[in-house]
């Protein structure tokens, strides 16, 4: 008898839910003026931005990005731009 049903989930199982499909907009990381401040990583509500302080190359995971635009709004040097998702 499996009593987990409906009451117990496996750790991190939400990864199977590709929330990227929510997005109407998507960020474009321009890789021009980036200072490696990491603010976009801090502020991304989904935790989908990754990158390297040294190379200053940052990017995001389209599978889960919801296109909120916070990263673009908060990037101090406007190195991220939001564009419409073509659906």
């Amino acid at each position: 008898m499996d009593f987990k049903v409906g009451i117990i989930s496996m750790p991190g199982a939400a990864l199977s839910n590709k929330t990227g499909s929510f997005a109407n907009e998507t960020p474009v990381f321009k890789h021009k003026a980036c200072t490696g401040c990491n603010l976009c990583i801090y502020f991304c509500p989904e935790g989908v931005i990754y990158g390297d302080k040294k190379t200053k190359i940052y990017d995001f995971d389209p599978d889960y990005c919801k296109g909120c635009g916070i990263c673009a709004e908060e990037c101090p040097v406007d190195d991220i731009e939001m564009v419409l998702v073509e659906k």
């Binding site: 008898m1 499996d2 009593f3 049903v5 409906g6 009451i7 117990i8 989930s9 496996m10 750790p11």
Partner: peptide, 20 residues
């Protein structure tokens, strides 16, 4: 690290209650 007390949507609530 299991998660306890999850949201049981209409697709699974009845089965959970049935098991109980």
């Amino acid at each position: 690290p299991y998660s306890f007390g999850t949201l049981g949507e209409p697709s699974v609530y009845m089965e959970s209650r049935y098991n109980m």
